[in-house]
Amino acid sequence: MTDTPLFKVNGISKFYGTRTGCRDVSFELYPGEVLAIVGESGSGKTTLLNCISTRLTPTAGSVEYRMRDGAFRDLYRMGEAERRMLMRTDWGFVHQNPADGLRMTVSAGANAGERLMAVGERHYGRIRATASDWLERVEIGTDRIDDQPRTFSGGMRQRLQIARNLITGPRLVFMDEPTGGLDVSVQARLLDLVRSLVNDLGLAVVIVTHDLAVARLLSHRMMVMKEGRVIETGLTDRVLDDPREPYTQLLVSSILQV
C-alpha cells in the first residue's frame, strides 16, 4: 500500500426526513486495502456504501477519489457522464443479487465484453479472448461463454458478475453482501476466489457484510456501524479479537442476529 489514499470520505451523512441513514462518516482507503463495513440490518452500512459509490446522493459531506493522474476529484462535483465513466472503468460494484449487476438476456461473454467496450476496445476477437480468459479466472468453463446468465447457478452468476467488474482492471471495487443468499459451500469457494483476485490484482475494496467471518477472511480493516454511526474502527483482527464497544462485543459473540 502506498502512503497516499486512493479514496477519502469526509463527513458523509444521509437523512430521509427525520430518519438517519448514516451520520458524519469519515475514513480513508489506500490502494490494495480491503475495508469491511459491518453491522446489523438497519445499521446504515448499505446507505453508506451507496453514498460513497455515487449511487445515492448524500445530504452532507464529500467523497474524493484519486484519479490516475494523481489529482483528487470530489465525486459530487463531477458531471454525471464523468461519474458514469468512472463506474464503468476504474470502479466496480458487486451486487448482492447478481441479476442486479448482469444483463441476464445476453451471453456471459457479452456481459464481460461490455466493460471492455466502455474503455475503447473494439476488436471482437480480442474482446472474446479476454472474456474467455476471465471466465476461466472465475472458474466458469469457457464452453459457457455463449450461454446467458439466466441459465447459470447463483454461484456462477456471482462469479460472472465479478469477472464483468474486474475485466477493465479497476482500482476500487465496492461489494454489497457478495455471498448473501448462497449455500455455505458455494460461499466458501466464492470467498477463496475473491480473496485470491484481490491479492493478485492489488485492489482496494469496500465490502458491506453482516457476516463477521467474511469480514475476517477478506478485510484488513473494519468499521462497525450502529444506527447510522461508526462506533468502532480498527484492524480487523483487533476489532474481532478484542472488541472495545459493548455493541461490537455483542456482534462478535453472535448474541445479535445480524
Rank of each mutant, 00 (worst) to 15 (best):
L201K: 04
F93E: 08
G44N: 06
G228W: 05
M87R: 14
R55F: 15
L116I: 13
E40P: 03
V34P: 00
S219W: 09
R189F: 05
L75F: 15
I37C: 02
A204D: 03
E82C: 07
R68C: 09
V138N: 02
C51H: 04
G70E: 04
S26M: 12
V205Y: 05
G154Y: 09
S153K: 02
T105P: 00
Y16V: 10
R122S: 15
D176W: 08
M85E: 09
L203D: 09
T142C: 12
F152N: 00
P149A: 05
L86W: 08
S107G: 10
L182G: 05
G181R: 13
D24G: 06
G109Y: 01
G141W: 08
V186D: 10
I207C: 12
S253C: 08
R171A: 13
G44T: 07
D211C: 06
G120C: 07
A99P: 02
M222P: 01
D143F: 14
R88D: 14
M223N: 02
L197T: 03
L49K: 02
H123V: 15
L201P: 03
A215R: 06
R159V: 08
T89R: 15
Q257K: 14
A81R: 13
D74V: 02
V138K: 01
V208P: 04
D242H: 14
P246H: 15
Q249C: 11
E245S: 09
D237A: 15
A99W: 09
L116R: 03
V208N: 02
L256F: 13
Y247F: 15
M104R: 02
P5K: 05
V205D: 01
K14N: 03
